[in-house]
Design a protein around this nucleic acid. Structure first.
Lengths: 223, 223
DNA sequence: CTATTATTCTAAGAATCGTTAGAATATAGG
DNA sequence: CCTATATTCTAACGATTCTTAGAATAATAG
């Protein structure tokens, strides 16, 4: 992507546009959302975003050329990660803008993330207070590798796919809180629905792990 | 721009992408930068951004469809404005990301906004302290209509084009500070260069008017 | 009602982007 | 060196976006 000769100002704006353009495709937003959970190989990105491997590679290239992601090689695998936490902050800002400004977005969020049969989502502040009081069972329902790369201290890893066979081991006398990747991730929604159906008192965290970290709350990593 | 049938999640991400796409063109970033100064007619946007009228209208339509700008009609003119202040915040976040991540951007900024013959830019905090101490002459070198729509209290309006004939009226025993639209606006840079050449001690504000307002500092409007 | 001004709408060619197939590269393990 | 695996590169086609010309609309002044 060569930038043509121009006034310094418009040259500058073309570079700004290049960054915005990198996040201007649904597939790349989903990839950035995934990478906000931790580094992933190209293959893992492709599986996580339901893109073909070649297509995921092509999108990752665009993100890398805009310097929004960085890579490291380990053997035959190449791991991509966000170039800096601010990348996720920009993403959340765009998502917030879309949710405030676009009625269609609010509608989808209402229908899929605020189904009225469910309890209100828990705020991060409330969760922290209840964790300190040892008042809730906190479930991280993301895939295990994402849990390993950083999770809320005190959370237990129960990937959504494993949840059915963990139902018997969870205490039923405490409220359960489930969280996943972020406000627009369906894992915690589905986990909460399953738990509610089987008699648990369950709520989900309003946001996800990267938001928790971005707010400065403590994060635990598996060695 | 019809959005096709899809999973709720990818539908959501397509809407997010729509917002990012609206800011993914240099011309539209420049337009948003202009509108951050206050509302402008289509004609004024076209002149301010050196786009043809039809092209400016087409870009404004895209911004309106992404709900980033809003309009009001006054007679035969239609005035566009940012839909909410957060639009400018997202823009600055993208610009900040570009400046931190892209060496080309840092290079342009170094060459055109940090020419080493000039004094260090003034921070907003420093400016406020010196305004309180009545220690500087503050020049708003933007066009008069932008000054009228909101300026730093105590600033006098001296559009860059008028600066040569105001040189005699400015006190030479105090430091002058010039500001304009933002960190990437050249008006204050050029004003500072002219003032320095004619013997003034001059610095420019590191950021512009919308940044000042976004930080919560007071803004004065002409009735 | 007509003329004028400001803006939008429609349409079309040029430019750019997205997707994917096939070839190429890079590393690790025998 | 050979093979397998992970990923990238190249090239092509279709889809989308950009720009602009010409026609249409909307409000105002006479």
């Amino acid at each position: 992507m060569t930038i043509s000769r121009d006034t310094p100002k418009s040259l500058l704006f073309k570079h700004f546009a290049r960054v915005a353009q990198a996040i201007s495709h649904a597939a790349r937003i989903e990839i950035l959302d995934l990478l906000a959970q931790g580094e992933k190989s190209v293959d893992a990105v492709a599986r996580g975003s339901r893109l073909t491997l070649k297509n995921a590679s092509a999108h990752l290239r665009i993100l890398r050329e805009a310097a929004l992601v960085a890579t490291r090689r380990d053997g035959t695998r190449i791991y991509y990660r966000l170039a800096e936490p601010e990348v996720h902050a920009v993403l959340r800002a765009v998502q917030g803008l879309a949710e405030r400004r676009l009625a269609e977005v609010r509608e989808i969020v209402r229908d899929y993330f605020a189904a009225d049969g469910q309890l209100e989502p828990v705020t991060m502040e409330e969760l922290q207070a209840r964790l300190a009081a040892d008042d809730v069972t906190l479930l991280d329902v993301r895939p295990p590798d994402e849990y390993a790369q950083g999770h809320i201290p005190g959370a237990i890893s129960v990937p959504l796919s494993d949840l059915p066979r963990h139902l018997d081991t969870l205490p039923r006398d405490r409220q359960v809180v489930a969280y996943c990747r972020g406000a627009y991730c369906v894992l915690a929604v589905e986990a909460a629905a399953l738990l509610a159906r089987t008699g648990f008192t369950v709520r989900r965290l309003a946001h996800g792990m990267p938001d928790w970290a971005a707010r400065g709350f403590p994060v635990e990593r598996q060695s």
